[in-house]
């Protein structure tokens, strides 16, 4: 499977990373190197094998669904690049 310029641009868009037009060819070529390496996995017979979902056999723990924390607006916002009147501020989303 080979990645072309258009696919590289599509992946960059999906990943929300801006890639300049002029960098798309080299990006596609790097992808192909890495994917070429990954292609080795096709040599393995995986018939009947379950994909691994958990490293250790333990079950995920459950807890009671209750409020255990909160009321920390200032701390939640303290690292925001733009916080106004108790909210995260972003460019206009809805006209």
């Amino acid at each position: 499977m080979s990645i072309d310029r258009a696919t590289a641009a599509r992946v960059a868009k999906l990943a929300r990373i801006k890639v300049e037009e002029s960098s798309l060819d080299s990006l596609a070529s790097e992808f192909n190197q890495i994917l070429g390496f990954i292609e080795q996995l096709n040599e393995v017979n995986v018939e009947g094998i379950e994909p691994m979902t958990s490293v250790s056999p333990q079950k995920l723990k459950r807890r009671i669904d209750q409020v255990s924390d909160g009321d920390q607006q200032d701390r939640v916002l303290s690292n925001a690049p733009d916080a106004r009147e108790g909210f995260f501020a972003v460019p206009k989303v809805v006209e």
């Binding site: 990954i38 996995l41 393995v44 995986v46 094998i49 379950e50 994909p51 691994m52």
Partner: peptide, 13 residues
């Protein structure tokens, strides 16, 4: 399926 699921199956092995 071709990449991610296959890789997780190989991980099981």
């Amino acid at each position: 399926d071709a990449y991610y699921n296959r890789a997780r199956k190989v991980r099981s092995l």
